[in-house]
Each structure stands twice: as C-alpha cells, then as structure tokens.
Design a protein around this nucleic acid. Structure first.
Lengths: 253, 253
DNA sequence: TAAGATTTGTTCGTATGTATC
DNA sequence: GGATACATACGAACAAATCTT
C-alpha cells in the first residue's frame, strides 16, 4: 500500500500543514496535555527549518481545530488547549451544513437515545441537579399565550434536555444529544411563527417533564425510559407541525 | 448585550480570525455552495485592507475546518469545499481525545442505534448493496486460527457496520455509527493481542451477519432489529474481553 | 515541447503591539 | 516607567505550480 503510482494524485500537502502535522505528532509523542507549553515561534523556525510565516500558518491551523491556544507577551507562546464542546459542535454543524438533515432524521435518533439517557440517569442525580431540572421545568408554568411565548417555552424545553445530557457519564451520548438540542434550538429561533400555540401538546410536554423528574428521583429507570419515549413522540409532532427546515449556515469559531 | 465591561475578558480575536469570519459571512450571505469561487488573495488584501500574510493565515483557518480548498496556478485560488466525512470524524476524534471514552460508553450507543439502523434498512437495499454486504461477510468463512487472524476478522466485521451505515438515508445516524466503527477499528488495530481466538463468539457473530442480510432482503424490519441487538451483545462481550483502552492520539488533516 | 501568464507558496527584514518583571 | 520576551502584522521579493498558447 505505498503511495507510489497511486492514480489518486493526492494534492501535495503544503508546508504549513506538514508543519502542523509535525507539531501534532510532537505533542502526542510526549503525551502532553491541556496547558503544556509548546516551543515558541523562533524555536519552531529553527526546529523545522521554515520561515516565520509558515510556522504561523501552521499554528493558525491548529488553533482553528481547537488544539492550541496562543498568547502574546513574555511567558506567552502556544499551549495545548483542550478542545471545547462548543467548537466541536460548530465544526460538526459545518459538516451537516452540506448534508440536508431533516427533522425526521433528528427524531429518529432522539427517540433511540434520549430514553436510554433518561434510564441511565435514574437514581444517579444529586439533589442540586434535580433542583436545576425543576427550575427549568417550572420556568413556564402556564400555557403559552402567543406563538412567540410558545417558541420560548420550546427553547426552554430543549435546554432541559441539554442539561440532562450534561449529567450523564457517557460523553459521547451527551455530546450527540447536546448537538441535536442545539440544532433544534437554532431551528426554533429562526423559524417562522405561523402556527398557533398547541395547548394539548404543551400540557403533555410539561406533564412529561414533571413525571420524568419524579422517576429520576425515585430511581425507576424503566419508568424514566418510558416517559422519555412518550415525550419524544410529542416533541416530534410539535416540530413536524412547523415544517421547519434546517437552517443552513456556517457557525464555528 | 454589549461586550463592554464584560467580566469575561474575551481574548481579542486576532486579525486572521476576523478575516476568516468575514469570509465565512461573505460566503453565507451569497449562499455559495461547493465549488463556487472565492476572490483571490490579492483581491482579499484590497478588500480587507490587510497584508498578504494575514489573508493567508485566514485561509489556512478555513482550510483546516474543511470549508475551502485552494489550488495554485491560473484559474486557481480558493473555492468553497464540501466538508468531508473523514475530516469531520477526525475533528470529532480530537475532541474525544480529551474525554476518556470507554468501551462501555460506545456500546451503550451502539446498542441503541445499530438495531434502529438495521430496522430502517429492511427491504430498502438494492441488489448491489446486498452483494457488497455478502462479500464482506464471506471474507472470512473460517474461524480464526490465530489472534492476528481474529483481529483481521474483527476489523472486517466493523467494515460491515460502516458500510451498512452508509446505506441509510439518515446522515446523522450514519455519521455517528461510522464514527464509532472507526474508533473501534483503531482500537482493534493498536491493541495488544493477548487473548486467544474465541470460536464460540466468532460463530455467533458470523451467523448474525448472515441472518441479518437475510432479514434485510426479505424486508423483515423487526427481525433485523432483533438480530442486530443480539449481535451488539456479542460484539460488546468480545471488545470488553480485550480490556482495550481508547487510543489517545490526534488525527485530523 | 516550450514559453509566458497567473495565482498560490515561501522567505526575509522590519516594525508594532502586548504582557511580564 | 523601562527593559524584556514574545506574538502580530506589514511589504517586497522570489519560488513553485499549473493553465494557455
């Protein structure tokens, strides 16, 4: 599997990306972690035998991926920087900018994952966490009086799910659920308001949240799963009513 | 919500970053899509009133995120580039480099998602796709004779799942499953081989693949779901036996 | 094949900004 | 405030890739 004679002429990597790769390798080889210092610019210029401009382009590449953070001044320079969730979500959103996700796609996944998350959290939450959830659920104790208000409630509800995903131990599961909540929130923020508030669905949704909290407190994981599953059905109906389209835009940075 | 007096002194965005943002905005505002041309370097130098070096750093940022592709020569320059799955997976992997994912975390998700995917594909595959799956499943018709051979079979099996995820219409679901297959493949590639081949599990795994293909062809979605669920149990046992640790390394680019 | 034109790629020297001591 | 150490930014020049004729 050599790269010789490969018909797929790979587009020759420019020097900045080669340097960026070299730096990444350097970091991994020494098993550096968040906060550890990298050599400064002039050291890299010597080390890799390239000019300042090239080194700087390489550093911008790593910075764009969230792998390093750079500071000026004495004691400054670049350090390894923990990649943030926000940036990662943004990068993932950029990918789906080109992929035409539908509401149905997102709900196919939510219906599988959210009940699983709820079940895994039953009996595992601290009283502070429970309190936070209650606060979110109580944020809108009355049915929405206008489409605008319903929108706000919908967003608060998504924040509830996002918060829940933070409480789980499974970082992958949490990330994906948080990502979907973000997409749906943006969708809700930007969408047209042409539907009147739906009282029946509102009532069910709120009821679900309260029942869910109760199940989480009592540690009944099967019940938590069931409630969340019903809730997803309701939420899906609500979203599909709006015939919303996924907002196409770059985010990142 | 002004940025004045914000206690959270946000780390002043450098000029390349600002230029990169401006370019992104420019692209979105015109609703450009994959392949459309951006102004060339000198035009940007004029347009933004910055130096060549600054423009180039901005372009490297966008390139690192997969948003543009740059070519030299006449008619060259930068174009909007569809963000590739590979790059996106790599960027996501960078995030989880810091998050200590466990095998259990990944399988909690696989157990939820893979059966769902299987069910959604029942009766929807073309004969070419079925053939490809059969080929992958038939790649190792005999039980592994060595640990090394078992490793190869395990990787082939993951390729089977990856392929399956490509066939679905749900891009988000496909992406996540593909991502997990990739992580597990790397894990398998780099892990120590201290366990002897496990014939019983091998037999079950292969049986599952064949039964699954059959269910997919006949369009029995409930059966497809069930088989995949059992298969996930087996696969999880196999992985956990190895006590593998998630490989920590940067990928990307 | 070869030459010329176009556009990105890379270097260097210099100057400026910024944080620490 | 001044000295120091570092990143940030500019501009001019030259190198390399690639398209056209």
């Amino acid at each position: 599997m050599q790269e010789v004679n490969s018909p797929k002429q790979k587009p020759r990597r420019s020097r900045p990306v080669l340097v960026a790769d070299a730096i990444k390798e350097w970091v991994v080889k020494r098993d550096l972690s968040s906060g550890d210092k990298l050599p400064n610019e002039s050291a890299m210029i010597d080390q890799f035998g390239v000019s300042k401009g090239t080194v700087r382009e390489a550093l911008r590449i790593l910075e764009a991926q969230g792998l390093i953070v750079t500071k000026t001044g004495p004691g400054g320079g670049s350090i390894v920087g923990e990649v943030s969730v926000e940036r990662t979500r943004a990068l993932l959103a950029n990918y789906f900018y080109f992929q035409d996700l539908s509401i149905a796609d997102i709900y196919q996944m939510r219906k599988s994952l959210e009940p699983e998350l709820a079940a895994s959290l039953a009996g595992k939450l601290t009283s502070e966490q429970i309190l936070e959830l209650r606060n979110l659920a109580d944020q809108y104790p009355q049915p929405a009086k206008s489409a605008e208000e319903e929108k706000e409630q919908h967003i608060a509800s998504l924040a509830f799910h996002s918060k829940l995903s933070d409480y789980g131990k499974n970082k992958l599961l949490g990330f994906i659920i948080g990502f979907m909540s973000q997409i749906l929130t943006e969708l809700t923020l930007y969408k047209q308001l042409y539907e009147p508030p739906n009282y029946e669905l509102w009532r069910k949704g709120r009821e679900h949240q309260l029942q869910l909290i109760e199940a989480l407190v009592s540690g009944n994981s099967n019940k938590a799963r069931e409630i969340m599953a019903s809730h997803m059905q309701v939420a899906e109906t609500l979203m599909k009513q709006q015939e919303a389209q996924i907002v196409r835009r770059f985010i990142a940075e």
